[in-house]
């Protein structure tokens, strides 16, 4: 692993806490965009992985996660005219603490999983698990549809980080497919968000409660 790998992952971990702690939805979008662009660069730092295909993938990932999706999200946000997340199930400070505890747990748990020699001192596994957990916290505790989408993106970022251990196992076609799926998923979700807003005049998912037992 290169010298830059772990510092970037530390920044990713800090961004997790930032995203959990802020109530402004634009800040959440910006935090997730920076995180996405940072992890998009990771494959280029892997030794012996600089090929045309890898370069193309990295550029695509950075453009999608760092530019296209945030622009789509910001546009959706402007259309619905909301600025702040309402007070979540677990408060903002409490969720930061929860996220930090999650990161500690991830470090401890990753210690129990055996790593190959080449990966022994890297932060990939704990960073990945902590990011997945952050995504879960956002998804479960927030009420605005857009913040929940950001939670899904953070979760996806966590899975992507783990993928760094397996670059040779994931052929380009599959990587492309996964990226395309992510993009279409966000696209479909944006359409639904738009419909939710038109039909319910709100993006508060607590209003989506007519279907239950």
């Amino acid at each position: 692993m290169s010298n830059f790998f772990n510092p970037i992952l530390v920044v990713v971990l800090l961004l997790n806490l930032f995203v959990l702690g802020t109530s402004r939805i634009t800040s959440v979008i910006r935090g997730v965009a920076i995180q996405g662009a940072l992890i998009g660069m990771l494959p280029l730092l892997l030794p012996g992985h600089v090929s045309r295909g890898a370069f193309l993938m990295a550029v695509l990932t950075i453009v999608l996660k760092g530019v296209v999706i945030p622009v789509m999200m910001n546009r959706a946000l402007r259309d619905v005219e909301i600025k702040r997340e309402v007070e979540p199930v677990i408060g903002f400070q409490a969720s930061v603490i929860l996220g930090a505890l999650g990161a500690v747990w991830a470090l401890l748990f990753a210690g129990r999983l055996p790593l190959t020699e080449a990966h022994a001192d890297s932060l990939v596994v704990p960073a990945s698990l902590a990011t997945v957990l952050t995504g879960f916290i956002l998804l479960i505790t927030r009420f605005k549809a857009l913040t929940q989408v950001m939670g899904y993106l953070v979760l996806e970022n966590g899975v992507f980080i783990f993928g760094m251990l397996l670059v040779q196992a994931m052929p380009l076609v599959v990587e492309m497919g996964a990226l395309l799926d992510l993009f279409v998923a966000v696209f479909v979700i944006c359409i639904i968000v738009n419909h939710i807003n038109r039909a319910f005049s709100t993006l508060d998912t607590r209003q989506l409660a007519s279907l239950k037992e």
Binding site: F136, V188, S210, L211
Partner: peptide, 19 residues
């Protein structure tokens, strides 16, 4: 309105599962 709600839940829960 109900079908929007159903699609939303399907997408969110399904996407998390698939991730």
């Amino acid at each position: 309105q109900q079908s929007i709600e159903a699609t939303w839940k399907y997408m969110v829960v399904g996407s998390v599962g698939i991730a």
